[in-house]
Amino acid sequence: MPDRTFLIPLLVRGAFLWLVLRAGFAYIAMLIEGAPQPVVVPGPAALWLVLIVAALGMIELRRRHQLLLLANLGVRRWVLALCCAAPAILGELAIVWGQPGPA
């Protein structure tokens, strides 16, 4: 795992990216379908959201010159991608679990 100096900003950025993407997704869904529950997205769409958050997080790490530094600290890229995506994964799971079950 990355040191907390890098981990905390990584998680915060991941959460921010996920919220922005989620909000954008919900807004578009509402415009197109007038969906009553735009928070709920199909499984594949949620997976894409997670992947996009991970990819954007990695791009941001590269932009900040932190990929090489973190590699020098022995942190593998898949661990970093997972850290970037962690807030999105948790958020999507929370939404799924927060939905009321079938009557």
Partner: peptide
């Protein structure tokens, strides 16, 4: 990352610091 965890440190010609 694997080599670094075993003791290697690589200083590239470009910036490494954030």
């Amino acid at each position: 990352a694997v080599l670094a965890s075993r003791g290697l440190f690589y200083l590239p010609s470009r910036d490494i610091l954030s």
